[in-house]
């Protein structure tokens, strides 16, 4: 397995999966990303990020219900794994520590 480091976009995706909790599936993640970050990610980008997160063991997927708007396709729900939660906490701690070390930061 290649490293468990989080890329920037991966971290965002992981966070959103956490935010959406029980309602985290592809299209919802995309919508949430658009809403929260103002980005306009493509389906391919989000899916490949989510797949990488699965590979790293941070999230797991399961099938959910279909809907008309999805033309009868089932949703694939993503859920944070304990490893994913640890990874989120670790990156946050690392961020905070580094942030505090900056001598003077205006504002």
């Amino acid at each position: 397995m290649k490293g468990t480091n989080l890329g920037e976009f991966e971290e965002l995706a992981l966070l959103i999966v956490g935010v959406l909790a029980d309602d985290a599936y592809g299209a919802a993640v995309i919508q949430e990303l658009e809403l929260r970050t103002g980005r306009n990610p493509s389906v391919g980008a989000v899916h490949s990020a989510l797949n990488r997160l699965i590979d790293k063991g941070f999230i797991k997927s399961e099938y959910g219900a279909a809907s008309e708007v999805r033309r009868g396709r089932r949703k694939v729900f993503y859920k944070l794994t304990p490893a994913g939660e640890t990874a989120l906490i670790r990156t946050r701690e690392l961020r905070n520590r580094l942030f505090d070390l900056i001598p003077k930061l205006s504002s």
Partner: peptide, 13 residues
């Protein structure tokens, strides 16, 4: 299945 569902849903939105 997951991908196309997301494609459609995002498109509709």
């Amino acid at each position: 299945e997951g991908i196309t569902g997301d494609l459609f849903e995002t498109y509709e939105r």
